[in-house]
Design a protein around this nucleic acid. Structure first.
Length: 491
RNA sequence: GGCGCGUUGGUCAAGCGGUUAAGACUCCGGCCUUUCACGCCGGCAACACGGGUUCGAUUCCCGUACGCGUCACCA
C-alpha cells in the first residue's frame, strides 16, 4: 500500500465520538477476565453514546483455535454486548480481522522505515536462550546500525528480515486513567519486532495501527500491557498521531497469586452458565470485580451499568473471583425473575428428576424460585415428587415443632380425614383446612404441619411447606403418602 | 535480575489529612416461620512493615517486605 492510500485510510477515521473496542485473539474461549474487559469497553462507549467495536486479532497463525471465534460471538451476544462494527457486520473502518489487513500494516511499516522509527533486522529468530531463569538479554540493536550499503546487499542477497522498532534515547511518559502517570527510561525498552518474517505484524504494531485507523478513543485492555505501552506511545509519536486514553485493568484472579485460567480449571463464562448461573448475574458480578459504583447499590442490569459506569471507579489492584458472592447475585436474580420466565428456565432442570406429567410444573417452579442459588440446585430439590424416598420415622421427631413419633401419628390420624373431606383441592383450601384443624386440636401449626410435610415428602428439607407440597402432589397422592406414613408410625 | 505496578477485615470494596474506617459476600447469634430459604435485627473481623512531612496520617513522600506484570517473529 502506498502512502497516498494510507492517507486515504486516515481520512476515513471517524471523529467526534467515543469509540472503544474489544480485541480478542481467537485462541481460546471467553474467560471471566476477558468478559469483563469487553464489558468495560462496551460501557465506556455506550455511556457516552459512542461506538463499541469488535476486532479479531489473529496475527499469530500458529495459535488459532478451532471454534474460538464462534465462541466469542456467542458469549458477547448472550451477554448483550452488541458491537456496532465488527467482522460479521462490517463498518466504516474495516476489515475488522487483522489477518485481512496485511497490506495496511505493510504500508505503515514502510512508512515507519522511511521515518526512521524502525529498521530491518536480518539476525534471524532469537534462540530461547535457556539461561535457566532471570536476566533475559535485550536485543542489542545491531541491525539498527547497519549502513545503507549493508542493508542493500542483504536485501539483494534475499536475506529474510523482520522490522524492529527503533527506540530513541530519552524517557517516555504516558497517562493511564486507572494507574495514573507512568514514566520509563527508554533504555529499558526493547527494539521489539513489529513485522514478522511471515509478513504479518505483531500485536505491538497491529494494535497501534488499528486503534488509530479505527478511531479508537479509549483503549481498554489488561494491565499486562502496561509495560509495553511506552513503546506504543513511541510509535504513535513516530507517526505523528494522537495517543488514545488508556484504561488498563488489573486481572481477575482465582486466588492471591494466580489469574483465572482454564488451565487451573477456573470456569469460563460458558462454564458458569452450564453451572446454572444466569447471564445477568454473572455480568453484574463481573462488573463489580475491579470496579465500584461508589454508592451502596450493587444490583445492576446491563442498562443500569451503562448509566452509572464511571472509569474513575476502576480499581488498580487485582480482584479475586468469589463464587459465594456470585451465588448471592444469582439467587437474587432468580428470585427477581418473572415467575413465567423462571418456569421456562427451570423446566428442563425440573424434568431431570420429575418425569411424571401429573404435577403442575408452574406450582413447582413457584416454590423453587424462592430457594435456589443456581439452576443446578433444582433436580435434587424435587426428587421426592416422582417417588417417595425410603425414610425412617425418626424424621417425625422435631423439638421445635413439638413432634415425636406418637404425636405425629395422632396428627396424621386427624389430617387424613380432614383432607379427605375437602371439596376443592387447592392451596388455599388445604391451608385453611390444616390451620383450622390445628386450632381445633389445640396444637401449634408446626405440630401438625411437620408430620404432614414429612409424610408427603419423605425428607427433612423440602422446597415449600406442607400446604404447598400437598397442593402440588394432588389429593390422591397426598392421601396415599399420608396413609403410608401413618402405617409406618405403627398401630 | 532490570524496569513497571500493586498492598484497607477470609473475599469484593468505600475512603481521597482529622471518620466510632462505610456497605456487600462468607461465618456466628437472634427474630419471623409450616422444614429450608427469603426477610429483619445484632455480632466477629482490616488500613503489610519502618522511617519521614504535618498540630494530626489509612490518606502525602522515601525505604523494606510480599505479590503480580513485563523483558517472544504470543497476544
Amino acid at each position: 500500500m502506498h502512502n497516498t492510500q494510507l492517507t486515504q485510510l486516515e481520512s476515513q477515521i471517524p471523529t467526534g465520538q467515543v469509540r472503544t473496542r474489544f480485541a480478542p485473539s481467537p485462541t481460546g474461549y471467553m474467560h471471566v477476565g476477558n468478559l469483563r474487559t469487553a464489558l468495560y469497553a462496551y460501557l465506556i462507549a455506550k455511556g457516552q453514546n459512542g461506538k463499541y467495536l469488535l476486532r479479531i486479532e489473529d496475527t499469530d497463525q500458529n495459535r488459532q483455535v478451532e471454534g474460538a471465534e464462534a465462541a466469542i460471538y456467542k458469549t458477547l451476544a448472550d451477554c448483550g454486548l452488541i458491537h456496532d462494527e465488527g467482522p460479521d457486520i462490517g463498518g466504516p473502518v474495516g476489515p475488522y480481522i487483522q489477518s485481512q489487513r496485511r497490506d495496511i500494516y505493510a504500508g505503515y511499516a514502510n512508512l515507519l522505515l522511511e521515518r526512521g522509527g524502525g529498521y530491518r533486522c536480518f539476525c534471524g529468530k532469537r534462540d530461547e536462550e535457556e539461561s535457566d531463569e532471570k536476566a533475559v538479554a535485550k536485543y542489542d540493536g545491531r541491525c539498527g546500525r547497519l549502513s545503507q550499503e549493508e542493508i542493500q546487499a542483504k536485501l539483494e542477497a534475499g536475506e529474510p528480515y523482520v522490522i524492529r522498532q527503533r527506540i530513541p534515547a530519552g524517557t517516555t511518559s504516558f497517562s493511564d486513567v486507572v494507574f495514573g502517570e507512568i514514566t520509563v527510561d527508554n533504555a529499558d525498552l526493547d527494539d521489539g519486532v513489529l513485522m514478522k518474517t511471515d509478513g504479518l505484524p505483531t500485536y505491538n504494531f497491529a494494535n497501534v495501527i488499528d486503534d488509530h485507523l479505527m478511531g479508537i478513543t479509549h483503549v481498554v485492555r489488561g494491565s499486562e500491557y502496561l509495560s509495553s505501552t511506552p513503546k506504543y506511545n513511541l510509535l504513535y509519536k513516530a507517526f505523528g498521531w494522537d495517543v488514545p486514553v488508556y484504561v488498563h485493568c488489573a486481572p481477575v484472579m482465582r486466588d492471591a497469586t494466580h489469574k483465572m485460567s482454564k488451565r487451573h480449571g477456573d470456569p469460563s463464562y460458558e462454564d458458569l452458565i452450564a453451572m446454572g448461573y444466569l447471564t445477568d448475574a454473572v455480568l453484574n458480578y463481573v462488573a463489580l470485580l475491579g470496579w465500584s459504583p461508589g454508592g451502596e447499590e450493587e444490583m445492576f442490569s446491563l442498562g443500569a451499568l451503562t448509566r452509572v459506569f464511571d472509569i474513575k471507579g476502576i480499581s488498580k489492584s487485582p480482584a479475586i473471583f468469589d463464587m459465594d458472592k456470585l451465588k448471592h447475585f444469582n439467587s437474587a436474580y432468580i428470585r427477581a425473575m418473572e415467575p413465567a420466565a423462571f418456569h421456562e428456565l427451570a423446566l428442563p432442570y425440573i424434568r431431570e428428576t420429575v418425569k411424571s406429567e401429573a404435577y403442575d410444573t408452574r406450582a413447582i417452579a413457584e416454590v423453587l424460585q424462592q430457594r435456589c442459588e443456581t439452576l443446578l440446585d433444582i433436580p435434587e430439590k424435587v426428587d421426592f415428587l416422582d417417588a417417595l424416598p425410603d425414610y425412617g420415622t425418626e424424621l417425625y421427631v422435631n423439638k421445635k415443632s413439638k413432634t415425636d413419633e406418637d404425636i405425629s401419628k395422632q396428627m396424621l390420624d386427624a389430617a387424613i380425614p380432614a383432607l379427605e373431606g375437602m371439596a376443592h383441592w387447592n392451596r388455599e383450601a388445604i391451608h385453611e383446612t390444616l390451620i383450622s384443624l390445628a386450632q381445633s386440636l389445640e396444637v401449634k401449626n408446626a405440630t401438625l404441619m411437620w408430620p404432614v410435610r414429612i409424610a408427603v415428602a419423605g425428607k427433612l428439607v423440602t422446597p415449600g411447606g406442607a400446604v404447598e407440597l400437598c397442593a402440588i402432589l394432588g389429593r390422591k397422592e397426598t392421601l396415599k403418602r399420608l396413609r403410608f406414613g401413618r402405617e409406618k408410625l405403627g398401630a
